[in-house]
Design a protein around this nucleic acid. Sequence first.
DNA 1: ATAGGGTTAG
Length: 310
Amino acid sequence: MKSKGLEFDEFTCSTVISACGREGMLDEARKFFADLKLSGYRPGTVTYNSMIQVFGKSGVYVEALNILKEMKDNHCVLDVVTYNEVVAAYVRVGFHDEGVAVIHTMASRGVTPNAITYTTVINAYGKARNEDKTLKVFGQMKELGCVSNVRTYSSVLAMLGKRSRPEDMINILHDMKLNGCLPEHATWNTMLVVCGEEGKQKYVNQVLREMKISRYEPNKDTFNTLISAYGRCGYEVDVAKMYGEMIMVGFTPCITTYSALLNTLARRGDWNFHNKSYFLLVFQALDVPMDRLVEAADSASVCSSFLFLF
DNA sequence: ATAGGGTTAG
């Protein structure tokens, strides 16, 4: 471009800078940015934003804040992306409360926080298993009239999953549908993952009902997740039912499927002959190929005592 | 042109 005498613009600069960031080439980004300015280019909002992203994503938040300061000193306009990057830079290093503070700052400066802003902090609080703050920010978002989307809901659901709160998850799912937000494949998988302990099979059943109401077509992953979920609850009958249904609708079981079946057995822990014959009968009735099961056991490093069962 | 998320075994 230079040899042809073409000038760089905001498109060129942000593209180069974010490419450096994706590859973790911080020094190259620094040099490119410095050279730009030396050549007389005045960076605009998008170029500054991409620089903030580079340092924010890599956890060098002090440098991200320095870029922000330079941006202000040069009277460059700060937009919603700028603030969102600053929020991301803070939460990246665990400064969640500082991230929330940025939401207030931006609002007071006339830049309205959007779903991305809120989802960034909601997700961060969720990953930190901070149930109270996750829900608090989620509530504030709603009060201020910012509409949640599927990503916002996913973050809240993931947090509730980590905290084993299936009732709340189902409430959130209802809220989601009430707001016309459609659950995605992984949303359903997330819903199913929590229902782990004894007695939780009713939640798996409930989620399954919700799926049907939503006319959701389970894919292969969903069936694998369902088999695992029922397995974790110790509900072998439904494990078998799901396996059968999976075959019926035409999905080919894979290593994950067999591993989930194996782990259903392994979880029981009592390796007496009675269980052995019972499951072999069930598996045979379902046409589960034994060689595939052994292969799964092998690849999944299931304990040798389990292999002994066969 | 730059910003946020979730996925099955153990």
